[in-house]
Design a protein around this nucleic acid. Structure first.
Lengths: 329, 329
DNA sequence: CTGAAAGCGCTTACAG
DNA sequence: CTGAAAGCGCTTACAG
């Protein structure tokens, strides 16, 4: 920068002013400075700028994994929004491992990020307390379970997602149904039940099958079990697309055509759900809006320095009807 | 830091020494310093440290996307290795968009990263020239096409991967085959052909079907076309798992049982390949080793400051036989 | 609109 | 083993 200034015949403050545009510089001088910058191939040292300004223009993001369509998509959405605002993304995947999360959190307790976005509550049960004395804004998103009251959270109304799935099946006339759920998807199941309860119908615990993890194989074996135990049920709700894909495979194996013999409604609407026909009817999650809203909160806190009130914003999912559901004959 | 020093009754240099461990400090003094740190809840400012040391302990990673099993896995592997060495990960997804890559590259021309790992050559055809006057080490990985000679590259012997797939089918007795390939997968196809050529067999251009992008739907329609045009072929090589999954679906639709009527061998061995039965025979890529080796090169350059010679290291894939291939009756 | 000064919070030689 | 100084490369008031 000193070199640039010398070459342009000004002081480095003027160079800084030209770069930042904060203080007006005479056009002729500015042009000389720009020329010097180009000739010398000068690039500003962002670390020095960060130290001087106190802002690194970097946002940290915690996410359970990127090996899942939903989270991979969310990371890319967040990156998009961040880029629009000139921020960079420091990524930490926790692998649903509290110890890993703890280590990463410790590493960020410095000034290396301006803010932290924590997406997904999986595996973070205990370690959020580490954020108690953090100096930067924290926002939570994609949070299905109890949200710690201390932070703003932008999430999806998962209960409503389950409700939409339930209403869809009810509107098609289904009465006897089974549910495939991941342990963390309690709210989706509650919403689903609420939809049936509205019509005075009960979805008993015995009709809810837990898949230990949201995998294709898990969905497949849980669905087989469910269909065997409830042969008269005409529809199935899977709280995750991969579970539903597994269920599709199970139905094929058991010679039950979908949607003819069995309607299947899924949740999350990831690309995984539109692989093999029939295309899954699924509850779509507004992850782009979630990313945008979460980053908006984060940036407002960073720039305004106003402590955003710990509020909970719920975004509404919507159901996309495709080929895996049909009305009861 | 000044406050810590005062509280411990030393100067901040001593605090720095305790923290870094570079200069020995008397145990009693060190203990007092640590106590002061704990009482004050002091956390060092990493930005200031970066400015002073010239190292941010952050590595940038370019990747076409994270919405793909292979790249998502690679990102997590890289993160693992980086963490072992106390480095953080700044992630940039290019979405196979040269303009996007250009913008990100421009943003990194500062001192904010110590090195850059570029994974995957998709969409980076022209914009690598931007790296010409970069000040930090650059390593390329997962590079299938022509590697720019200026940078070290750690990649997989994709040609050998295709060869393994071909040898596998040959060892099972298959002679008439078709190929489903992505445009970027030329080397895999070459290797596959070489395996057949060894036995004096030709895989003609007319037997190679291009899927514009590596998607399930693309694989499905390309496979349908291939099976219709080559009804007597007994095996199919798909250069990507999702293409192969699509082919499986196409075979099911056309009532050809796999592997009974048609053997299918895939490439990449991602979890996508073990979804619906039959589990895919596939060529597994050593992405963990690739991540480890690439980061090793990068760190050696960062720390040793020795310009690693632009060399090309090839890691060997291996074939994993599962249920989608069988010997010709 | 432009120049001289101080400071962001560390680390790295360099004397004692 | 511990203290005083200079410097990393910027930005931000503050005079002219």
């Amino acid at each position: 920068m000193q070199d640039v200034a010398k070459r342009a015949g000004v002081t480095k403050q003027t160079v800084s002013n030209v770069l930042s545009g904060r203080v007006p510089v005479r056009p002729i001088t500015a042009a000389r400075v720009r020329e010097a910058i180009a000739e010398l191939g000068y690039v500003p040292n962002l670390v020095a700028r960060s130290l001087a300004t106190g802002s690194s223009r970097t946002v940290g993001m915690f996410v359970p994994t990127v090996s899942t369509a939903f989270y991979a998509g969310l990371v890319e959405r967040v990156e998009d929004v961040l880029e629009e605002h000139g921020y960079r993304l420091l990524l930490c995947t926790t692998r649903r491992d509290g110890e890993r999360a703890r280590r990463h959190l410790a590493g960020l307790t410095s000034r290396s990020v301006d803010a932290l976005l924590i997406a997904g509550d999986e595996g973070l049960t205990d370690h959020l307390s580490l954020l108690s004395r953090t100096r930067f804004p924290v926002v939570l998103c994609a949070w299905e379970t109890r949200a710690p009251a201390r932070f703003p959270v932008v999430t999806i109304d998962y209960e409503h997602g389950g409700y939409l799935a339930g209403r869809h099946l009810r509107s098609l006339g289904h009465e006897q149904v089974t549910v495939l759920a991941s342990p963390a998807h309690g709210p989706r199941v509650s919403g689903f039940r609420r939809a049936f309860a509205e019509d005075g119908l009960d979805v008993p615990d015995s009709a809810v099958y837990l898949a230990p993890e949201p995998s294709f194989r898990g969905g497949m074996s849980a669905a087989e079990e469910a269909m065997r135990a409830h042969p008269s049920s005409t529809a199935l709700f899977a709280t995750h697309d991969v579970l539903a894909s597994g269920a599709l495979e199970a139905a094929r194996g058991m010679r039950r055509s979908v949607p003819g013999d069995l309607s299947v409604v899924a949740h999350d609407d990831t690309p995984d759900g539109v692989l093999a026909p029939p295309a899954l009817t699924s509850v779509a999650l507004p992850s782009r809006e979630m990313a945008r809203e979460a980053i908006r909160l984060l940036l407002r806190e960073i720039e305004g320095a106003q402590p955003a009130d710990p509020q909970r914003r719920l975004l509404l999912p919507r159901l996309i009807a495709r080929d895996s559901t049909s009305s009861l004959a």
